[in-house]
Design a protein around this nucleic acid. Sequence first.
DNA 1: AATGAATGAGCCTTCATTCAT
DNA 2: GATGAATGAAGGCTCATTCAT
Lengths: 215, 215, 215, 215
Amino acid sequence: MSDSPCNDPSRDRLLLAAVEIFAERGFRDATVREICAKAEVNAASVNYYFGGKEKLYAEALAFALCQANQRYPLGDALNLGLPAEQRLIAFIQVFLHKLMDNTALGHHGKLIAREIADPTSALDGIINTAIAPQFAMLKEVIPSLVGPGWSESDIYRCILSIVGQCLMYKHSRSVVDRICPNVIASPDEINSTADHIAKFSLAALNHLRIERTQT
Amino acid sequence: MSDSPCNDPSRDRLLLAAVEIFAERGFRDATVREICAKAEVNAASVNYYFGGKEKLYAEALAFALCQANQRYPLGDALNLGLPAEQRLIAFIQVFLHKLMDNTALGHHGKLIAREIADPTSALDGIINTAIAPQFAMLKEVIPSLVGPGWSESDIYRCILSIVGQCLMYKHSRSVVDRICPNVIASPDEINSTADHIAKFSLAALNHLRIERTQT
Amino acid sequence: MSDSPCNDPSRDRLLLAAVEIFAERGFRDATVREICAKAEVNAASVNYYFGGKEKLYAEALAFALCQANQRYPLGDALNLGLPAEQRLIAFIQVFLHKLMDNTALGHHGKLIAREIADPTSALDGIINTAIAPQFAMLKEVIPSLVGPGWSESDIYRCILSIVGQCLMYKHSRSVVDRICPNVIASPDEINSTADHIAKFSLAALNHLRIERTQT
Amino acid sequence: MSDSPCNDPSRDRLLLAAVEIFAERGFRDATVREICAKAEVNAASVNYYFGGKEKLYAEALAFALCQANQRYPLGDALNLGLPAEQRLIAFIQVFLHKLMDNTALGHHGKLIAREIADPTSALDGIINTAIAPQFAMLKEVIPSLVGPGWSESDIYRCILSIVGQCLMYKHSRSVVDRICPNVIASPDEINSTADHIAKFSLAALNHLRIERTQT
DNA sequence: AATGAATGAGCCTTCATTCAT
DNA sequence: GATGAATGAAGGCTCATTCAT
C-alpha cells in the first residue's frame, strides 16, 4: 500500500525487482529467489517484508499502477474546459505512450497486461483504482462526439473500440512486431499511430453521429 | 505437427486434454499429471508421445489453431467476387464469433490469446499458419475501402484498428465483464458488437478516404 | 491401512523407518528427509507413497499398533473359560511386557505413548482399534473380582488404577530409571514387577469386595 | 535458575508466557515469536535474556516446578507426627489435585508431564528438585504400611503403583476423557478419584502386610 | 509399444538467531 | 541495555522426467 519508494531501501528494491521479474515471467514462473537475487536481499525477505509471494505480487501490481499513473497523468483528457475532441486526442496520446513505455517503468504495463489476460484476485482492485476512472472519463467524452440517441451499450462499444485499438499494440505486441514491425517501434511511429487511432476513431464517431442525426 | 486427430486414440485424447488444460491454466500452471488424468492415460505418456511438456504445448497450440480455422472458415471474407465492404463485414462477424466461442472449441481461442500475450517459440509457427493469412486478406480488402495514397504502415494501422477492436473482447474480457457486462455476453450481443465494429470501422475508413480525396 | 508389510519393499521400509524415527523424535522433530534416508529411498517418496508427512504418521501409528497386538496377543486374558483372577494376571503380564519391549517392535509403544501424551487426530482411531477392546475386557473381568454394588465410575477407577500402574513404567520411564533403575530393566525384573502389580491390584480388589460385603 | 519472579518484568513475563506456550504446544511446536508476542516483548528477547530457546525451556521448566510446589505444598504428607496412613492419604489428595489443576498454574503440570514423557537434559534437575523429595517421603511412609520384610525394589514398586495410579489421569488424560469422561472432570470427581486411589492403595498395602506376616 | 514406479531438482515458507544501533 | 531489521539453514512438498519392465 505504500506507493512511494524510498521508505525502506530493501523493501523498495524488492518491489522494483518484483515488478520486473513478474512482468517478465508471470506470477508462477517468477521465483522468489530470483526476485530476491535481483534485489540483492536475502531469500527470506519476501516473507519478511510482504508475507509471501502472493502478497508481494499484489503490492507490486498496485505499485506499478501507481507509478504508471504518476508518470503518465491523463492531463488534458480530464480538463472539462476543453472540447471533447481534444480531450479524446489527449487521452489516446497519453494512453498509447503509457502502453508503449519501454523504460524501467515499462514493466508496469506488461505486468498489468498479464493481470488482465490472466486475472487473479488482485484484478478487482486494479479495475477500481486505475481502469474504471479512465472508462468514466471516456463515458463523459464520447456522448458529445457521437451525439444523442445511443444506448449505454452503444457508448461502451465505442469506448471499447477506442481502447481496443490502443491495447492491440500492447497485448498483441508480439504479433504486431512480426507482421508490421514499422508502425510502433520508434517514438515517432508511436506518435503517428496515436494520430491514426485518434483520426480513425473521431471519423467513426462523427460518421455515427451524422448518420443517426439524418435518420 | 500432425494436425488431424484419429491417428492414435491416446495421443489424440492427450492433445484434446492439453488444449483444454493449457487454455484454462496457462503453460506453467497446467501440470502434466492433470492433462494425463483428463486424457485417461499414463503420466509418462506426455514424454512418450511428445517428448516433454513444452513439445506437447507446441503441438496443442498448432492443433487448436487448425481446429479453430476449420470451425470458423473465413468464407465470404475470402470471396474475391464480393465487394470489399461486404468482405470486411464477413470477416468481423466470423472473427468475433471465433473469439467468443465458448464451446469446447472455445478453448482454442483462449490458448492462442495466451500465446500472443506471452509468446513462446511456438508463436512464429502460429503467425505463419493462421495469422498472416488473415492479415494478407485484410491487406487486400482495406485499400479499396480507404482509397489510394496511403503508406503501407497506414494500411497496417487500419488493419490493427479493426483487429484490435475485436481482440479487445477476448484479451481484455476480464475487464469488459467487470465494466460493461452487457455488451458481449449473449449471442445477440455478440452480433450487435460485430455490427458495431463493422459500422465503426467502415465509417472511419470511409471518412479517411473522403478526407484524403478532398485534400 | 495395509497392516502387513511385504507388499511393497520401499513402502514397508519407509513405514518401519517412520515408526522408529517418529518414536524417537516425535512428529514435529522427525523430518521426512531423515525417515527417507533411513529407509534408503528418495526424499519425495513419503509424498509419493503416503501423500504427506501427516498421512505417513497416521499409517505408521496404525501399523505399529497392529504389529504390537500381533506380537503380544491378549491370549488367556480373553479366555472366558478361565477365572477372572487368572485373566487379570495374564493381562498384566502381557500388557507390561508389551510396554517394556525394547526390540525393534518396542518403538511401537513409544510411538503410541507419544500419541497419548500429545494427541493428534489419529488418537480416536487408536482408541477404537486398540485401547477400547482392552478396557472392555477389563470391564468384564473386574466386577467379578470387586463384587457387586459398585457404580460404573468405580469400576472404571479400578481399571485405571491397574492400567495406570503398568503405564507408569512406560510413560514415566525416564523418572523410574533415575529413581529406581533396578525394578524394570531386566526381563526378570519385568516379571517381578508384573507379579507385584497383579498382587497389589488383586489385594486391593479383594479388600474392596470384602469391605463392601461386610457393610 | 532464578525461581522467583519480580526481578525483571520483561524476563518474568517471558517466563510465564513460555510455561504456557511450551505446555500447550511442546518444545518444538512452540515458537519463540509466539512466546515473545504473548509476553509483549521483542522477538530477540529470548536470546537476550536466556541465550536461546532451549535455555528458556529449561528455566521455564524449573520455574513451573517451583510455582507448582508453592501452590500445592505437601503439607500433612510431610508431617512426621501423623500416622502413615493419614500422610499417604494427604499425599494422594494433594498430588492428584496438583496434577488436575486447570488454572493458569495448571500449565505447569502439563509442562512437566511433557518433560517426563519426552525428556531433555533438563529432566535431571527436575528430578532432584521436585520428584526425588516426594519419592523420599513415600519411601518413609510406605514401609510402615506394608510392614517389614520387603526389599527396596518392592518398596519402590509400591510407590510406583501409587504414583502411577495418579499420573494415569494426567499422562493419559486423552484416553481417560474418551473412555470414561465422568471420573475426573469435576472437582467432586477428583476428590472421589483421590479417595478411590487412597482406598485402593491402602487396601493393597494392608493385604500385602497381612499376607507377609502370616507366611 | 507403453506404463507404473521412482527420482531429483527446485519452490515457498518458517524460524531461531544475529547484529548494528 | 534492549530492540528492530535481517538472515541462513532447513523443512515439506510439487512436478516433470526417467527407467526398467
